[in-house]
Design a protein around this nucleic acid. Structure first.
Lengths: 160, 160
DNA sequence: CCGATAAGTATGAAAATTCATATAATTTCG
DNA sequence: CGAAATTATATGAATTTTCATACTTATCGG
């Protein structure tokens, strides 16, 4: 039935349309599609996605300050402040003012937070391998390098 | 000064950490970074990003129903309903019940909406070319095909 | 050293998004 | 056929997120 009321066809026959091959769409859609399953797992463990991102970064490097953690975790600063406070209340992290620069607040994993983070990182590795296995052959091997390069060029500060 | 209170280093020296080479992070971060500039442009023209996505899809194919438009535009259904109502109030689209299946609501661009969409699509093409030019050489050529393939495998329904 | 500017974080109101569910129409199939 | 299940959209309350800005501490220029 899906062709019964075939909506108006903009372009010619073979035309695929703009969006479905538009880089920004492909990036957003691929990100969503690739993440959906794992993010569902994250939520089942009682975390929101931004919280998982914070845990993952702290797993890599503990004691980051709020602003930088926000930048690398793709979270707006004032929101991260709120999230960190909630995570502290749940016993996942602690906040400590930086002695050198008392404007800064550094965030550290608690043991509980670290255990959770380690478990999730392990899951994430497994899930990542599954997703990458989809692309075995052709383009798979170059996807991560290409994304890294793009990121490096577009947002030099993000790592560095 | 950034090393004065060098945060605890989790891994070994050469170790880059988990997240910065994690596929789901690279996808999300690259998507954000690549989109940031253009999305700012969109907002300057008085649209939110989801509204732009809807316009772009309708530009390609007018008269989509709400549910499908939501799926392909990466917007949750009840939210899209609200957005479409607002866009209708702004004179960008019109809604029409489908005669064949009266549960469905199909969305059509108005002339105003179409003009806006065409302008934005033109801008998007230019911006996309700029972003892709960053990757000239190496990996650039295969990025879009790789993302398409990933998408196709992960979410077969989204097109087709 | 002082005033001005900048950097880092927090806060609250406003806006948005999500979630569960209501409502309505269609399809399935015994 | 007709009850049950399914599909499509809308709605409202609750939660999340954004935005502007306050507040504190640090840095810079003279």
């Amino acid at each position: 039935m899906q062709n019964a009321t075939a909506p108006h066809d903009e372009g010619a026959e073979g035309e695929e349309g703009f969006v479905s091959n538009y880089l920004l769409y492909l990036l957003a859609a691929a990100s969503e599609a690739a993440s959906a399953q794992f993010h569902a797992e994250v939520r089942q463990k009682g975390l929101r996605v931004p919280e998982w991102r914070v845990l993952a970064w702290l797993h890599d490097r503990d004691g980051e300050m709020i602003t930088r953690l926000a930048r690398i975790s793709l979270i707006e600063q004032s929101r991260l402040t709120k999230i960190i406070i909630q995570m502290e209340e749940r016993g996942l992290v602690t906040r400590q003012g930086d002695a050198q620069d008392r404007r800064r607040v550094r965030v550290w994993l608690t043991n509980k937070g670290r255990t959770l983070a380690q478990g999730l990182v392990a899951d994430a590795r497994i899930h990542e391998a599954q997703v990458l296995s989809i692309l075995e052959g052709g383009d798979g091997a170059r996807l991560k390098p290409a994304l890294s390069a793009l990121l490096r060029e577009l947002d030099p500060e993000s790592r560095g």
